[in-house]
Design a protein around this nucleic acid. Structure first.
Lengths: 194, 194, 194, 194
DNA sequence: GATGAATGAGTTTTCATTCAT
DNA sequence: TATGAATGAAAACTCATTCAT
């Protein structure tokens, strides 16, 4: 693993546990096994670490759900694959997700350039889900709900699970199956054309 | 408004916008219109500000949903009141909620005393909802779902809405009605014993 | 001497010897006998130290030459008093002058607000001298030279002496008498009206 | 232009604008279009850049005034050529001069070896001028002033012009003609032997 | 000759906290 | 109760310099 990568790994773990402002760059350097100067040699400023982490995460997630959505089958099948991909992704990438969701205010200042970049990426998350719903409504596998708002609720529920786990004050049971079943009950007709 | 209260108000707003670690006590003092020493005179240390904010918030919320749950009608009626109370509370207290949800790690160290205090309060949030569900299942107004996991999902969806709004990267539509309808569809039988 | 003043004194001496960028604020604090935080408590940033030093110096100098110029006698008499005041002031305030003349670039950025402030003060230095010359030309005590350019040359020669001394590579002899005689020779008619 | 030369050029410009301590070697490298290592490959340390700049400058200037002084004519004629050469040199080499005059303290430590080197060169500047004056006094073209102190004043006035321009807070008019006329008036007899 | 990744000492600045008034 | 000067530990960041390639 290159020094640059080990810095990113260390930063992700520390930001997740202690927050961006609660983590010193010296601590990141120590954990990554490099000199403090090396952190700044590669990332120029502390904030860039955060941006790198968020960027990699959101990009990978959008790629993943796009791929999940594209497969064969009904709209509901696609949506179910997106759901499962999201639940698994969330389990694997807890730390980055914690960071990306907690430290948004850092990504929002400065005339909105970064904000626009991430907003655009995030919008695609809603879009992919809405497309699945519309496709499902076209092929009869999904009920006539508002595609946009429902896509939001799908996103929100998954996000909510992450936050409740990350919050740490409640012991959250495994809810994956319930979530999928729950959405199947609410959305799936069980009855696509042909 | 007493100086103590204006300090709390200022702190809440600043913590919400900039995070606990991203906010200086001097900034709080300035915004509250008091001297920096006054902040420490009333709160002894910065962390106590955070604890005050969280404590007041969670206590009020638990009181609110308990009251909402106690009213007359079926279990589903009670649950619906709890839902609406939660959605409204969330709209009114966005800042405190943002603070309380983001800065948990600060509340978790110190041998767990604080952690236990808040864990106990949070558990009641799940309990109240579970009670409604069980009451609804007893009176036939709510389907035979897992009361505990469903209570969690109720909590999670509401929490998810808050976080998605607070995240700021997506323009979140008003989803109150959809949320209630969605749960009605998933949970309510429409057919209590009465 | 207040802590604030002792910080300024220490800073002046160190800036003069080592330059602004060559002097650490920690060094200033140590020399002034205060904690490093105290420097920033009083001056907010290192640059403000420099500005304070320059401001006090230029203000005092302008006051001094204005007062010297106002006295009785011919224009040449006034000019001679200004000259002597300048030469003495230069001897007494070598350190501040060194600082103020060497570190100008620090005073010039940022939309020119500071630049304008100091430019205005500096212009008065030329103005006072020019006024003396014009007064001397009116009363016949000073020859018909270009008042503006000559005022500049007066300023420049004094400034040059300071710099040559401060430069340190040449052992500069005492030139006060020569300078005054030199200007008398070049400017004074020895022959005012009445 | 060789890489070494382009480094020197970049350094001169940056030192003049930002000072020696205010300029990073990385900035010099970037401006010169070379890698940072290359700077150290050619100059071993940052200070050597400064020494090169000063050395080249002072050497050229001493050569120039010596040549100007050697020509034919009276002592005053020689002095006038030296004056004009100095004024022109100053206009052409503003940046290096700014650097050499501002950063002397850097050239002064180290047991005095460098200090002695530059002191010797600087003394020659006074010597050349004094020689002209003495030659002029011998041939009757220059009045009976103190040759040494007057040489200093000549040097000082020229230096003063440079500093006043470089200071940047005053808009300095063109004074070349005035300076020469002014010295002619003070020094020249207009009346050499033969 | 030329490079640029890596370093760690040093810099400016921030900030929670204390305390005398 | 309220203040704000004073502190010093810790933070982000800079930078001259080295060195393997």
């Amino acid at each position: 693993m290159s020094k640059k990568q080990s810095i990113l790994t260390a930063a992700t773990e520390l930001f997740a546990r202690q927050g961006f402002n609660g983590t010193a760059t010296s601590e990141i350097a120590r954990k990554a096994g490099v000199a403090q100067g090396t952190v700044f040699h590669h990332f120029k400023c502390k904030e860039n670490l955060l941006i790198s982490i968020c960027d990699e995460l959101v990009t990978k997630y959008v790629e993943g759900i796009k791929e999940a959505a594209q497969g064969s089958g009904t709209g509901w099948d696609a949506l179910e694959r997106v759901l499962w991909f999201s639940l698994n992704f969330m389990a694997e990438r807890t730390e980055s997700i914690t960071v990306a969701f907690r430290e948004t205010r850092v990504l929002q200042h400065e005339g909105g350039e970064l904000h626009d970049h991430f907003s655009a990426l995030m919008s695609q998350i809603i879009d992919v889900k809405r497309d699945c719903i519309e496709r499902g409504q076209a092929d009869g596998s999904i009920r006539q709900v508002d595609p946009y708002k429902t896509a939001f609720l799908l996103y929100i529920l998954i996000k909510g699970i992450h936050h409740t786990r990350a919050h740490g004050l409640l012991q959250v049971p495994d809810l994956n199956t319930e979530v999928v079943e729950f959405w199947r009950q609410s959305l799936a007709t069980g009855n696509p054309h042909q």
